Amino acid sequence: MDVSAPPTPLRRVCVFCGASPGLRPIYAEAARALGQAIAARGLGLVYGGGHVGLMGIVADAALAAGAPVTGVIPEALLRREVGHGALTDLRVVATMHERKAMMADLAGGFIVLPGGFGTLEEAAEILTWSQLGIHRKGLVFLDIDGFWSPLIHMFDHMGGEGFLRPHVRELAVVAETPEAALDALAGFAAPPTESWLTPAQT
Rank of each mutant, 00 (worst) to 15 (best):
S130Q: 15
A28E: 10
L127R: 07
E194I: 14
T8D: 08
A186N: 14
E170L: 00
L43G: 14
G44N: 06
A33C: 08
G53D: 01
G146C: 05
D143L: 02
A31H: 07
G42P: 09
C14T: 15
I144K: 10
E125G: 11
H97A: 05
L45A: 08
E98N: 10
A19V: 14
G35R: 09
P21C: 13
T198V: 11
G85R: 09
R12G: 06
G56P: 00
W196D: 07
A94L: 08
G187A: 14
D105W: 03
P25F: 01
K100D: 09
D143E: 00
A62Y: 13
V92W: 11
G44D: 02
R11E: 15
K137R: 15
D105Y: 07
A39Q: 11
G160H: 04
A30E: 10
T128M: 03
S20G: 05
L142N: 04
H51T: 04
A184N: 06
R136A: 14
F110L: 05
P7N: 09
G83E: 09
V69E: 08
T119P: 07
H135T: 12
F155E: 08
L185M: 03
I57C: 01
H84R: 03
E194S: 12
R80W: 13
L23Q: 12
R99N: 00
P166G: 14
A200D: 15
E29N: 11
D2M: 02
A190R: 13
E121C: 10
G50C: 00
W129A: 08
V52M: 01
T202M: 08
A39N: 05
M96V: 02
G50W: 01
H157L: 14
Q131S: 14
A186K: 09
L90C: 00
P192Q: 05
A86M: 00
R24D: 12
E179H: 04
C14W: 00
D145T: 02
A101H: 08
R41V: 12
V3T: 06
M102D: 02
A39S: 11
F155W: 15
F110Y: 14
V13N: 01
I111F: 13
R24Y: 12
T128W: 11
D143T: 09
A107M: 07
P178T: 11
S4A: 15
A184G: 06
V13S: 02
T70R: 07
R91S: 02
G85M: 06
T119S: 13
E81M: 03
I152Q: 02
P166T: 15
E176I: 03
L63T: 00
A94P: 09
H167I: 13
V93W: 03
A175H: 10
E125D: 13
L54G: 12
H157F: 15
R80L: 04
P25A: 13
W196Q: 14
R11K: 15
G18Y: 14
V173L: 15
E194M: 04
L127K: 10
G138F: 14
R169Y: 08
F16R: 10
A101N: 01
L127W: 12
G42Y: 01
V13T: 05
G49W: 06
T119H: 03
V174M: 11
M103W: 04
L164G: 05
E98H: 01
G116K: 11
C14R: 07
P114D: 09
S4F: 00
G133K: 03
I134V: 15
A37M: 04
T119K: 01
T198D: 13
L90K: 05
A39E: 02
I26G: 06
A64W: 01
I144R: 03
V3N: 15
